[in-house]
Simulated scan of single mutants.
Amino acid sequence: MLRYFAYFVNRLVQMVPIALLIILANFFLLKLAPGDMADVMAGEMGAATPELMASLRQQFGADQPLPQQLLHYYEKLLSFDLGYSFRNGASVATLIAERLPATVLLAGSGLLLACLAGVGLGWLSANTRRAWLRHAISTFTTVGFATPLFWTGLMLIVLFSIHFRWLPTGGLEDIDAEYQGYARLADIARHMIMPVLSLAFFYLAIYTRITRNAIKEVQGMDHVRTARAKGLGELRISIVHVLRNALLPVVTVTGMQVGSILSGSVVVETVFAWPGLGRLAFDAVMQRDLNLLLGILFCSSLVVMIANIATDLAYARLDARIALK
């Protein structure tokens, strides 16, 4: 365990310059976008004098040269200050802390469901002798991958919320009901069903195909033939000797999909009015809230980098031949 901890700390130190470069790239890319918060507020007021615009930009710090703004932002980060959202009247750290659990719940559940279902379908497709079943799995997963996230979400709403009236159309929970304890957990679970299914359905095909191809490759290896020659049962060989080694590509894809699923959650959170970081980022873009958007992008980047470290640790755990350096 000590070498795992040392590797984790070493990778965290290596993340520091990468994080600084990410902040630099995000800052200048956002500054290239036309307009700022002062323009948005002036548009909402219908008109604004040059004096008012100058006053707003001075209040937001947008009147300073770009290098000075960037340096000021770095200085605040060193004191663990992500800035202040003038639009929402709260600190960026507070807004992110309020929305982060909902996004982690949605993205984590969607990724876990896609991974488990994809591995299961991939294993079934690789081991079944029924051609129609293989074709059915391939067709099902391909349709999921080819279907846009927003369309899947809208169709689920039309079917289960409007037509059958089984599930709520959106939100994290029914606030008016004031549920407590297990009743609240059950209410949140009902609200999660459609968003999680929408997110998982898109990534299901990736896991299914990677698992199937990996199993087919591992089935021809020497250790599998040796296990079969020893008289072990096919089910035990398939699960213990084949599936465990076939999980390495799945772990790789999972680490890579963290960033993708966070971006996909923006669409799902918008469709289902899910109060997460994706919805907050969308609102920040529309309002030109630079401080809030920079904070969300920075935190999302940290999550992706930590997920990559966790992927390397899982690799070393599954395959003893891989050395941590």
Rank of each mutant, 00 (worst) to 15 (best):
L292P: 00
T141R: 01
N88Q: 15
A284C: 06
L111Y: 09
L247Q: 06
L78E: 06
I157K: 06
D174L: 03
G233N: 12
S109A: 14
A42V: 07
I22F: 13
F150P: 04
A19P: 01
A246T: 10
F80T: 11
E75G: 06
V104E: 03
I210W: 09
A314F: 02
V119F: 07
A200G: 05
R99A: 15
V119H: 04
K216E: 14
A323P: 00
G110Q: 02
R134V: 12
L247I: 07
L172V: 02
L32V: 13
R244Q: 08
W274F: 15
A33K: 08
F150H: 10
L95E: 12
R99V: 01
R236L: 11
N213K: 02
Q68A: 12
H72C: 00
L111V: 09
L197Q: 01
D174W: 08
V242T: 14
M37Q: 14
H191D: 04
A316D: 11
A146D: 05
I22A: 14
T94M: 10
W132P: 00
S125T: 08
R236A: 11
I18A: 10
R236C: 03
R165G: 04
L70R: 03
L52Q: 12
P249W: 13
S265I: 03
L297Q: 03
A284H: 05
S138D: 15
A131K: 11
S85N: 05
A47S: 12
M41P: 00
R190L: 13
G120M: 10
A19N: 04
L105P: 00
S125V: 06
E75Y: 08
R129L: 07
V253A: 14
E75C: 02
G122F: 09
A189I: 05
G153R: 00
Q180S: 08
L111I: 11
M192L: 14
L292F: 06
E98H: 07
V266I: 15
S125W: 07
A42Q: 04
M305N: 07
F150I: 14
V266H: 00
N127I: 09
M45N: 12
Q64I: 00
A93L: 15
I215K: 01
G255W: 15
Y74W: 15
L124F: 07
L56K: 00
L172D: 01
A131N: 09
V268Y: 03
A38P: 03
L197M: 07
L113T: 09
Q64C: 00
D39W: 05
R190A: 10
V13Y: 06
V13K: 10
G46E: 13
I96P: 03
L167F: 11
L294N: 03
M45Q: 15
L324P: 00
G46P: 04
R11A: 11
G181A: 10
L82C: 04
V250P: 01
V196H: 01
T128M: 13
G118Y: 15
G43H: 05
L2R: 11
I137E: 04
R209V: 09
F80A: 12
H72A: 09
L133P: 00
D174N: 13
Q58G: 11
R209S: 07
L232G: 07
T270R: 07
F272Y: 03
G120K: 06
A229D: 05
R57G: 06
M41H: 04
M155H: 00
N213E: 15
R228F: 08
S125M: 10
L159E: 07
T226W: 10
C299T: 15
V285Y: 14
E75W: 14
D187E: 11
L111T: 08
N245V: 03
